[in-house]
Each structure stands twice: as structure tokens, then as C-alpha cells.
Amino acid sequence: MDTDSLAPLRDAIARLWQAHGRETPVEGLYLTAVSAPTGPIHAVYRPSLCVVVQGAKISMLGDRAFCYDAGKCLIASMEVPIRAEITEATPERPYLAFSLALEPATITDLLCEMGAAADIPPGPALAVHRLGAELQEPLLRLLQLCERPRDVAILVPLIRREITWRLLQGPMGPALRQIGLAGSPAARIGRAIAQIRDSFAEQLQIARLAEVAAMSPATFHRHFKAVTAMTPVQYQKQLRLQEARRLLLSDAADVARVGYAIGYESPSQFSREYRRMFGAPPGRDRVAIRKGLAPQTGA
């Protein structure tokens, strides 16, 4: 893609960042502007479209790397913990991107109109594609609406629906179908993921998760790894440790108490696994983040 065609999107993001920062007047639309490469960023991606218009980023889902730079999109089709890094950014050419939450109800509605079948095999929860010209125009209009707040309530739903329709009609359609088809294997894995998220501090019960997904334990395990690039145990561990980091930063609780709160019975195991994920033991990591020496959790 000719990066000059991205200039209107870049200009819109730069203006909005100056006016609003990360959060925009459009619900679910978030901006990112970073002037230097980052270290590891740990976050949970929810169903969303991320568009990079300058710079580059890499997101790791389990051991799978998804690289995307200017003119590329990343689709997250369900809630997954990731590790990411912004790899290209300078003060002169900062990393500029925006993400838009995807609405399952809208996707389902449009799929019903399309008559799409529900037998799509599950694929990875992340996918990267090039931003097509047919998507640039409605995305730009959505960004421009942030500067016309009186129009937001009326026009945003229409433009979001148009964007979703364009996505479903293009190469990102299969990833979106995983969000909108309630009976698909990926959607059933999504229900099991929600179960893990809602009770991540409890002992994992594979048989119960397989029941939620309406699969045999063996089929569930295979489909879960196809979607998340992790086993259920690995997925739960990442959620637990990201929640531990949030708790450490949000209050003055001691490390052992945070470990117990997220389901660890052994403080030494909690400290060991926390260090393996974040590069420092919990207490030292909390101090480093508060001093601005370590990357914070965030998208």
C-alpha cells in the first residue's frame, strides 16, 4: 500500500490525540501515539480491529508472532492475553494506530442477512491483513466524527455497521465470523474462555470447560489451542498473572496476599511464575513500574 494514502488517517489521529489522548468521544474507539519503541507490553485483547498507520508492532499469542506495520490491520476475534511490543517509533515518525471494538450483535445480524453457514473451522484468535482501500474511507469518517460530537449518536452506529460489513466481505471475514456465529466451534471455545475469565482464581476443570463448549475433552483441547495458541492451563496462568500485576499497582496489598487472591497457594511459585512472565519478581516489578522504569500493562 502507498503510505501516502494513509496521510488522512495519520492527520486525523494526530489531531485527535492532541485533543483527547487515548480515549475518543466514540465509545470503543481508542488511539495510540508512541514516540519510541517499547519493551514488552502485557495485555488482554478483546474483539477488536486495530489499524496501524505509522510505525510497527508485534503481538505474541502464545508462541505465535503477528507482525503489523503501516497499512495493516490486526483482528482479535475473541478475548486473549497477549505480549506485544511497538518495534518502530521515533519522535519524528511516532507509532500511530487506533483500535475499534467489534460488536458481536452487529456481526451476527449481518451474517444472518448474508446467510453465512456456521461450520467454519476454528482459527487463531488473531489475524493480520492489509488495510483495503474500501475500508479506509469509512474508518476516516469514523475518526472525523470525533470532531463533530453532535453527530456521534446518530451516525456512529451507521458507520460501524458499514465497517463491519466491509470487514465481513473482505479477507478478514473468516476471522469475524468466529465472533458472530453462535454455533461455530470457535464461538463455543469463546464461551469456555469466558468461563475461565470469570473464575480464573479457581482450579481449572477441563471436563467442565469441555461441557460448556459442548465438546469432548480431547476435541475441546485441540480447538482451544487452535484458537489461542495456548493450553487452557497456560491461558489461565496468563490471566492470573496479568490480574496480579493490576492488583499490585492498584493497592498496597503485599505480594503473598495478591498471590492468594489470584489462586496461588504457594508464594514462591507465584513469585517464580510472575518473574518468568514479567522479567522481575512482583515486589521489584511494582517499584519499577511506579518509577516509570518498566512497561505497564495495556493495549
Rank of each mutant, 00 (worst) to 15 (best):
Y274K: 14
L126R: 00
A194F: 06
G170D: 02
A210W: 01
V34N: 05
P121A: 08
I193W: 01
A210Y: 03
A43V: 03
G115V: 10
R150K: 07
A192D: 05
L6C: 03
K57P: 00
R245S: 13
V152I: 15
A97G: 13
V53C: 02
E113K: 07
Q238D: 15
E92G: 03
V52N: 06
E202G: 09
R284M: 14
Q54M: 07
L139M: 12
P40V: 09
A229K: 04
L140S: 08
L142M: 12
P232Q: 15
A294P: 13
D11T: 09
R64K: 12
Y68V: 00
T90F: 06
A153H: 08
Y274V: 09
E79I: 02
Q169D: 12
R191K: 13
T24R: 00
G62C: 04
R240D: 06
L249R: 11
L293K: 13
Q18C: 06
A56L: 04
S199G: 15
A192W: 10
L96A: 02
K291A: 14
L248P: 07
A244S: 10
L247P: 14
T219Q: 15
K237G: 01
F98R: 05
I289G: 04
I163L: 08
V52C: 15
D4L: 10
A76P: 01
T3W: 06
A43K: 02
R15Q: 11
H221R: 15
L145H: 04
S99Y: 01
E23D: 11
T219G: 10
E211M: 14
L168T: 05
A97N: 10
W17R: 05
Q136L: 12
D11F: 00
L143R: 06
G170R: 02
Q296K: 10
L155M: 11
V34I: 13
R208L: 12
A101G: 10
F270M: 05
C112K: 15
H221E: 11
E85K: 05
P138Y: 04
R150D: 15
R10C: 12
V156R: 01
D2N: 13
L155G: 00
I13D: 08
E23W: 02
A244I: 07
Q144Y: 03
Q136T: 08
I107T: 01
E23N: 03
I189D: 08
G263K: 00
R245P: 02
P282H: 01
E88H: 09
V233D: 14
F224S: 10
S216V: 06
T38I: 06
A33I: 11
P282Q: 00
Q144E: 13
S199I: 03
S5F: 04
H42R: 15
E23M: 01
A192I: 09
A229G: 07
Y30N: 09
Q269D: 11
P40A: 09
A280C: 04
V255L: 15
R93D: 13
V53A: 02
I120Q: 13
G115M: 07
L102F: 00
A252D: 15
P185N: 06
S99V: 01
I179L: 08
D198Y: 09
I58T: 15
H42Y: 12
Y264L: 06
T219W: 06
M114Q: 15
A84S: 14
V34C: 12
P157V: 08
L168Y: 03
A97F: 05
E273Q: 07
S268H: 08
E265K: 05
I179G: 02
V152M: 03
P81Y: 08
